[in-house]
Simulated assay, not measured.
Amino acid sequence: MTRITIIRHGSTSWNKAGRMQGSTDIPLDEEGIEQAQKLGARLAIEQPWDIIYTSHLSRAKKTGEIIAAAIGLSPVLTDERLREVSGGQTEGTVEEDRIAKWGPDWRQLDLGVEAAAAVHERGVSFMNDLLSAHAGKRILIVSHGSFIRHMLRHLTPDFVMTEHLKNTGVSRFLVEDAKWSCDLYNCTTHLD
């Protein structure tokens, strides 16, 4: 059995402003750094970890580096397949901007947003490689909200996501015989 814990990165100034981040490389803000430190302290006492992967985007990579330092895990491995879903022309905008520029049905337009099929393809490719290389291990992954939601829908189709993924929210999976099951979703007890 392989244990995979997937974490959304800490907060950024664009999260707080409601700006579409996508693949734009926005750094953690001060609160995001504190969130990652608190999560690192939590994970240090939860269980031993074997490996950590992050997206190459700085907000996820920095979150992973802070966690890895807290749990004594090195190196932090990056993989571009864990990047956030590209928002195309919507990146850097807030909802008000999108409505003003493209109208209330902007989601129906082709604005260069990465297709779900492309997200699934790169995400499944990463997960297959991960499970092949690290079967039976305890793995941490730090990635992004939209990417994680796409992967959860694909890998655990019966699982119902009840809330928006929070910054440094922890979701835990058991993978056995290629079957994924979720036993913890979007947990942020470290922030309480």
Rank of each mutant, 00 (worst) to 15 (best):
Q35Y: 10
Q35N: 08
A36P: 11
Q37P: 06
Q37E: 15
L39P: 09
A41L: 11
R42S: 14
L43N: 01
L43M: 05
A44H: 04
A44R: 04
P48V: 13
P48R: 14
P48H: 13
W49F: 11
W49Q: 05
D50L: 08
I51R: 08
I51Q: 11
I52E: 02
T54D: 07
H56K: 10
L57K: 08
S58V: 06
S58R: 09
S58G: 08
R59T: 00
A60R: 00
A60V: 05
A60S: 07
A60C: 01
K61Q: 12
K62T: 12
K62A: 09
T63Q: 05
T63A: 04
G64E: 09
I66F: 03
I66V: 12
I66N: 09
I66K: 03
A68L: 02
A70D: 10
I71H: 09
I71S: 10
L73V: 01
S74C: 09
L77M: 13
L77T: 01
T78A: 13
D79E: 01
E80L: 06
E80D: 13
R81H: 06
R81Q: 06
R81V: 00
R83W: 10
R83Y: 11
E84Y: 10
S86L: 01
G87Y: 04
G87L: 05
G88W: 07
G88P: 04
Q89N: 05
T90K: 13
E91W: 05
E91T: 03
E91C: 03
G92C: 04
E95G: 04
E95W: 07
E95L: 13
E95I: 06
D97S: 11
D97G: 10
R98S: 07
A100V: 07
A100M: 03
K101T: 15
K101H: 11
W102N: 07
W102Y: 15
W102S: 08
G103T: 08
P104A: 10
P104I: 00
D105T: 12
D105S: 13
D105Q: 11
W106V: 01
Q108L: 14
Q108N: 14
Q108E: 15
L109C: 07
D110V: 09
G112W: 07
V113T: 10
V113F: 03
V113C: 09
E114H: 03
E114Q: 05
E114C: 05
A116D: 14
A117S: 14
A118M: 12
A118W: 03
H120N: 12
V124G: 05
V124F: 05
V124Q: 14
V124D: 15
V124R: 15
S125N: 10
F126W: 06
D129I: 09
L130C: 14
